[in-house]
Design a binder for these strands. Structure first.
Length: 362
RNA sequence: GUGGCCGUAGCUCAGCCCGGUUAGAGCACCUGGUUGUGGUCCAGGAAGUCGCGGGUUCGAAUCCCGUCGGUCACC
């Protein structure tokens, strides 16, 4: 029995709602995971995260192995105690960060330069697992090789195969019984390669699967086909996590195809740049139109920010770069995204998911 | 009162000595971008009677005269 299991609750078309059971409790899916790269979701704390209804958060192996180091976090009681978050935590393996650092990829592992001090760092599949066992999240991710798109098919296939070999090594290295290790599907935007990667990753027996290498600038149709090809080869009874996806259309499209989990920096990053998300469309509080607007960001939003502050005030905070602007907009954008996914779940359960999608698009 | 320096975009200034496309920069402002995070960054846009008046010249932010305002020094 895996430390993490997923149970289907209802289906509406290919869209599915379910429960993810972890050592730190049960959460509803589809689920959005706020990104707390360095054991902190930027600008907010764990109390704020509870307040917006987050159930699971993400942290990052790559950043935490460099600072403060996984052994230090282990000595401080593991990630949950370290960041004062009692709910489930997932750590990304660092594959995506490494990919953006122009690494040297060899069969043994990846070599790259630390963004903190420029020193050369090596991360192997076994190392990524060991570090994540020390960090002690509920879910660890296998170390994968993420290829930048567009890329030639033979390169995509070669790295997909390397990712499979690394996945096996991660599984062999993983020993922590109260932690799940998820595999990662690659294959670019080629449906055949996606299917191949998904089928072979599934065959390795992971308790859950990340869909990696997407949300990197590919077209909407390309992504849809890549997701469909991936999901077709993954077992029905295990969770599917689309990595790095978090815009409104992308989330709904992926949920419609059968995705269960997501993470994305978009809501939190946009918040720090003054942009807010609403059902009626996104807009920037930097824009002059909010100057003397006494309405909240979203009349229908029940987040702390919308219950308390006007657009005019928030625009002022953004313009003068008050630190509270980061926190207040982050709270709103996370609430928006979590509510969107939550509403999608309800729609699936009531069999009205496609109507719901049309309503959001309108 | 005398002498020096200064006045160019909302702000801080460059250009003036040696006249020559459409007067520039940074910041601010306006708009767009950001997807398994370095609180950024990138791209575009709008914006100036060159204090004012006169003169010289084919041509003046630039040279000359006057004038207004600011500032410093001396009396």
């Amino acid at each position: 029995m895996s430390a993490v299991t997923w149970t289907l609750q209802s289906k509406d078309g290919e869209a599915r709602s379910g429960w993810l059971d972890t050592p730190h409790g049960r959460i509803a899916t589809p689920a959005f995971m706020p990104v707390g790269t360095r054991a902190a979701v930027k600008a907010v704390d764990s109390h704020d995260l509870s307040g917006v209804g987050a159930e699971i958060v993400l942290a990052n192996t790559y950043h935490l192995m460099l600072r403060p180091g996984s052994s230090r976090i282990a000595a401080l009681g593991g990630l949950h105690q370290f960041m004062a978050w009692d709910g489930p935590i997932l750590t990304d393996s660092g594959g995506f960060q490494i990919f953006s650092l122009e690494p040297v990829i060899e069969e043994s592992g990846a070599r790259f330069r630390s963004v903190y001090d420029g020193s050369t760092v090596e991360l192997t599949p076994e190392g990524a697992v060991r570090i994540q066992e020390e960090l002690a999240p509920d879910i660890a991710m296998a170390l994968d090789v993420c290829v930048g798109l567009p890329a030639p098919a033979d390169l995509v296939e070669a790295e997909l195969e390397r990712t499979l070999r690394w996945a096996e090594r991660c599984l062999r290295a993983h020993t922590k019984s109260d932690q799940a290790l998820f595999g990662i599907v690659q294959g670019g935007v080629d449906p055949d390669l996606r299917a191949k990667s998904a089928a072979q990753t599934a065959a390795l027996g992971f308790p859950g699967f990340g869909i990696g290498g997407l949300s990197v600038g590919e077209g909407r149709e390309e992504r849809r086909l890549a997701l469909e090809a991936s999901f077709a080869e993954l077992p029905e009874g295990k969770p599917r996590y689309v990595m790095g996806l978090g815009d409104t259309d992308g989330l709904l499209e992926a949920i419609a195809r059968g995705a269960d989990m997501f993470d994305c920096v978009l809501p939190t990053r946009l918040a720090r740049h003054g942009k807010v998300l609403t059902r009626g469309g996104d807009f920037s509080l930097r824009n002059a139109e909010s100057e003397s607007d006494d309405r909240p960001i979203d009349e229908n939003c029940v987040c702390h920010t919308c219950r308390t502050h006007s657009r005019g005030y928030l625009r002022h905070l953004v313009r003068v770069k008050e630190l509270s602007a980061h926190r207040l907009l982050t709270i709103h954008n996370l609430k928006y995204t979590l509510d969107l996914v939550g509403a999608a779940r309800q729609a699936i359960e009531s069999g009205t998911f496609s109507d719901f999608v049309r309503g959001v698009a309108a």
